[in-house]
Amino acid sequence: MRGAEPIVLGIESTAHTFGVGIATTRHILANVNSVYEPKAGGIHPREAAEHHSKVASEVLIHALREAGLSIRDVDAIAVALGPGMGPCLRVGATLARYLAVKYSKPLVPVNHAVAHVEIAKLTTGFRDPLVVYIAGGNTIITTLVEGRYRVFGETLDIPLGNCMDTFAREVGLGYPGTPRVEEKAMGAKSYIELPYVVKGQDLQFSGLLTKALRLVREGARLEDVCYSLIETAYSMLVEVAERALVHTGKREVTLTGGVARSRLLCRKLEAMAKLHEAVFKPVDPEYAGDNGAMIAYTGALAYASGVTMSVEESAVRPMWRLDQVEIPWSRTAKLLRNS
């Protein structure tokens, strides 16, 4: 490897966001994203993919301009191969292969969930946190154990963000659901008991969603239902995070993913962390939602550890789990710290 740090361009297209970022193992050089907004209802994978194809070249050019670089200055092309929606993932993967072949650059596979975790570590300065990763498509509590991000708890049915989005859509609060429901909840007068489902370390939100919708249909005050829904969902989540924190004895807690912008959830996690002598800090809000920078940054970490793939190996992986990914750079970081 050359003396200078490698510069990696990363492409994100797992769901509603098409993004291109440029990063080294230390710095973000560019972060340009374009979000597909459905006219009605949830994300339609094919329509989102069409959006991504349309904006791809423009986003790429903007990112290079933002970093003040030409594509020739880039050492490797990283791409989020999963988890995500097949048609969306293929847009990013196709662009990555094209760039890799045309400019003779190595290709680096990046797991989208790992990228959310790594960008949180970069922006909080935490070295070994317990990570709560909450977004429209994911609800995972994880931490690094022996070279992998082990899942200590996760949703068994729908993700928390999805639960909020669906509820908000059905009751006419619009999109995105979490901030709308939280805002409405501020006008609550009473608390209504809803299904609180924590199974061991895992969570279930579908019963909660069904009951909340039924209450609204039956004429309960929307503000009260919003409050009870958000309180119940967040309490379930923080409780599982607390168990994981006590079990692992970690000293840092971070929140990443789109829902990391929630001040309410941050306050609850902070209160929990304090009980156990841990510090809490969420990911920088700019990198909370899906973005290209986190793929570039994680790609840079992976590339610096020698992780690359051939074009033949670059098929998309819609069901790629966080805990299937080896994290070789965690070992390197430890060695450096100990030396």
Binding site: S235, E239, L269, M272
Partner: peptide, 13 residues
């Protein structure tokens, strides 16, 4: 008791 959840929910649980 847990300071991070609504007192009513906390007590029920």
């Amino acid at each position: 008791p847990k300071p991070y959840r609504d007192e009513r929910l906390d007590s029920v649980l």
